[in-house]
């Protein structure tokens, strides 16, 4: 037989060798008494002498259940066991039991998945593990992972900051701080999908070009900022105000579909914008015309259609002599 030699070979290890090869081994007599154990287990037992004690009194085999005698243990040889020290049930070990060269057994223990806690709890060092053991590498990885995660967290925060800044810029008209065209498209589409009916105003400034042409762009910019302020004051915070062109604004008013209420808001805005705006000692005189529509007039509200109708109403208001508000489809 080719493996006959191996079958009859015996290997006797001195305790010193066993200590180094398996620093967490236990050697049990046939009666289940602890007759030897490794140096790392000695540290874990923290001064409790184990020699001569009954293995089953010192340790509890938690899984598989029912391993209570040496005969049970012998039946479980070669399979993974989970055990803990009695009175210290929080710390679990993994173990493997195999027969020694007589009628006793040798168990090799490891800390299993709770190794990081165990190393800390028992103050273990590199020397407490066999040089072939990868436990230290596992600790290294845990620490490296923490370092990398921390860097990732910081990077994410920086990216998040940059992102929200970019989004803010992309959806906001930088001059007035109002929504821009892109933001309006998104929010008007959302308003069309939502259940709440809404009113829509399209507002165009009168005589703005004249301010720009006679007093310059700085005056024009100032006027636009003041206009934005008037619009904010005369609407609710839940309303969406967008600057969609040089002197064109769109206001979405969720929940507001009553014609007279909308006319009232429009008149307040028109009155607010009729007041002269001082700029460097000059008074800029502008005005505004407003075209309106409400979502309840459409079987299915569509942004494009509603904007076009409000626009038609706006031009009707302009034709009717400016500083007016008109409601689609009752345009003069």
């Amino acid at each position: 037989m080719p493996d006959g030699g191996a079958r009859h070979r015996r290997l006797v290890l001195q305790p010193d060798s066993l200590d180094r090869l398996m620093p967490m081994h236990l050697h049990l007599s046939a009666q289940g008494r602890i007759i030897g154990y490794g140096p790392t287990l000695k540290k874990v037992a923290a001064g409790r002498p184990l020699i001569g004690k009954s293995f089953f009194e010192v340790f509890l085999i938690r899984r598989p259940a029912g391993v209570l005698t040496m005969a049970d243990l012998s039946l479980r040889q070669g399979t993974r066991l989970y055990l803990s020290l009695r009175g210290r049930e929080d710390a679990e070990f993994r173990a493997l039991a195999m027969p020694d060269d007589g009628s006793g057994m040798v168990l090799n223990l490891s800390f299993g998945i709770a190794v990081v806690d165990a190393v800390r709890a028992h103050g273990l060092t590199d020397a407490d593990f066999a040089p072939t053991d990868l436990t230290v590498e596992l600790l290294y990885l845990v620490e490296a992972k923490h370092a990398v995660l921390e860097e990732l967290k910081k990077l994410n925060l920086r990216l998040e900051g940059a992102r929200s800044e970019a989004e803010e810029q992309a959806l906001t008209d930088p001059l007035t701080g109002l929504c821009n065209r892109r933001a309006l498209d998104v929010r008007l589409a959302a308003a069309c999908r939502a259940k709440t009916p809404f009113g829509l105003m399209h507002l165009d400034l009168d005589h703005f070009k004249a301010v720009n042409d006679t007093l310059g762009h700085a005056a024009g910019d100032h006027v636009l900022r003041v206009v934005a302020e008037v619009l904010r004051v005369e609407t609710r915070t839940s309303d969406i105000i967008a600057r969609v062109g040089g002197d064109e604004f769109v206001i979405v008013l969720p929940g507001m579909v009553d014609r007279s209420a909308l006319h009232h808001v429009a008149q307040r805005i028109i009155a607010g914008l009729r007041r002269p705006i001082p700029f460097e000692g000059q008074a800029c005189q502008i005005g505004a015309s407003v075209g309106m529509t409400v979502s309840t007039q459409y079987p299915v509200p569509e942004a494009e259609k509603m904007l076009a109708d409000a626009d038609t109403a706006l031009y009707a208001a302009k034709r009717a002599g400016r500083a007016q508000a008109q409601m689609w489809p009752h345009v003069a």
Binding site: V116, D117, V119, R120, L124, T125, D126, V136, L139, H146
Partner: peptide, 11 residues
């Protein structure tokens, strides 16, 4: 040098 100190104190 403690093997596990850093691993647990920082999270």
């Amino acid at each position: 040098f403690d093997l596990a100190v850093g691993a647990l104190s920082r999270c």
